[in-house]
Nucleic acid binder design. Structure first.
Lengths: 194, 194
DNA sequence: AAATCAAGAGTGAACGTTCACTCCGCGCGG
DNA sequence: CCGCGCGGAGTGAACGTTCACTCTTGATTT
C-alpha cells in the first residue's frame, strides 16, 4: 500500500478516482472534495501531486491517449492492402471505445470543453500519422475519394464516435461483432471511390 | 421598446444573450450576471420570465430545434427518388449548421451535458420521421444497407456534425459548396448497398 | 536494541471567489 | 396612489486552492 515502482499509490488512486467521477458526473460534478473522498485521500493530497485540477485533468488525458495509441497498433501490419489496414485501425478504435465506456466518457467530456478546443483529432493522430499517410497512398492508387483530409477524417471518426456514444448511453446495442464489422466497412464505403 | 406582439422585448433579449454567451463560453462561463448584462437587463428580470437557468436553457433548445426542422423542410418534395430526398435533407442540415455557428455551438453544448442525455437524435427526428421512413423504403428497394437504424443514423449525423464543428472551429474550410455536396454524397455511399 | 530524529507524504479546516437565485426599492402609466 | 415591469445589491451554498499541521518511515546515534 505504499509505493509501486516509482509512482506513489496515492497518485494512481487520485487519477482513477478523477477518471471515474468525471466520466460519471462531468467536470463540474467532480469536485476536488469528491475526488479526494473516492480516492481515500485528503483534498490536500491532490495538490501534492498536481499543481491544479486542470493539470490533473490534462495529465489524465495524456495517459489515456497513449494507451489508445498502443492498443490500436497491436497486430497492425504496415505492408498489407490499404483497405485491410483501414479496417484494422478503425475496428480497433471502435472496439476500444465500446469496451472502455468510462475512458470514452472522459474523452468526450474532455473534447467538448475548453481543454480540448486546441488539441483535436490531429493530435490523436500526429501530423504524419498512419491514417493520413494511408489517405495519400489510397488517393494515389485511385482507391480513396479525392476529398480534403479533414472531410475524410470526419467521415470516419464521426460515425465511430457516434456509435460508441449511442452504445454506451444504451441507445443502441453494439454487442454484435458482425454489426461492428459492417459499420466499419460502411465507413470505408464512404471514403472509397467507386 | 415595450412589447412586441405577445412576447415581451426583454424576454427575447435575454434568450438571445444567453444563446450567444453559452455558445461562446459554455454553460459555466455564462453566468446569470453576464446574461443579464448583455441583455441590458437586471439579473432579477431573468427570473421574471424563467423559473430557473435550467428552464431558460431548455426553452432555448426547444425554440432552436423547431427552427431547424422548419428550415430543413423548405423545398422538400416527398415524392422524388430516395437518394435525392436524402441529399436534400442532409445538405440542408449541414448548410444550417455551417451558416449558423452560434446556434450550432449552443446545440453542441446542450447535447454534451446532463440536459441532452435523455433527449438525443430520436427527438430531432421523431419516432416516425422522414428519415426513418426513408431508411425502411430504401432497404425494401435494395438501395440501402440492411443495418440497424441507429447505425445508419450514426453514419450520417456523425460526419455532418463533425464537419460542421471542424468548420466552425476553423480547423477545416467548408466554404466550397462543391466539397459540401461531395461530402453529403459520401454519406450516401456509406449507407447505400453496392 | 532502543532512542532519536529528519524528511516528506498525507490531511482537512479555513479562505476567497463565484455562482444561481432572492428581495426590496425605484419609476412610470393609469 | 396604486400596481406592474424592472434593476441590482445582497445571500448562502459550493467551488478550487492553501497551509499549518500530524503521522509514517527508515537511517543514525547511543
Amino acid at each position: 500500500m505504499k509505493k509501486i515502482n516509482e509512482t506513489s499509490c496515492k497518485r494512481e488512486a487520485i487519477l482513477d478516482s478523477a477518471l471515474e467521477l468525471i466520466a460519471e458526473k462531468g467536470f463540474h460534478g467532480a469536485s476536488t472534495d469528491l475526488i479526494a473522498k473516492k480516492a481515500n485521500a485528503g483534498v490536500g493530497s491532490i495538490y501534492r501531486y498536481f499543481a491544479s485540477k486542470d493539470i490533473l485533468i490534462t495529465e489524465l488525458y495524456k495517459e489515456l491517449l497513449s494507451n489508445i495509441k498502443r492498443d490500436m497498433l497491436i497486430g497492425y501490419k504496415n505492408d498489407g492492402p490499404i483497405k485491410e489496414k483501414f479496417i484494422h485501425l478503425c475496428g480497433a478504435l471502435l472496439q476500444f471505445f465500446i469496451s472502455s465506456p468510462i475512458e470514452f466518457k472522459f474523452l468526450e467530456q474532455y473534447s467538448n470543453s475548453p481543454y480540448g478546443i486546441s488539441c483535436r483529432r490531429e493530435q490523436v493522430f500526429g501530423e504524419d500519422s498512419d491514417l493520413l499517410k494511408m489517405f495519400r497512398d489510397g488517393q494515389k492508387a485511385g482507391l480513396i475519394k479525392k476529398l480534403p483530409p479533414s472531410v475524410l477524417l470526419a467521415l470516419i471518426f464521426g460515425p465511430i464516435i457516434t456509435m460508441a456514444r449511442d452504445h454506451i448511453q444504451g441507445i443502441a446495442e453494439m454487442n454484435d461483432k458482425k454489426i461492428l464489422k459492417n459499420a466499419v466497412e460502411a465507413c470505408w464505403d464512404a471514403i472509397a471511390s467507386h
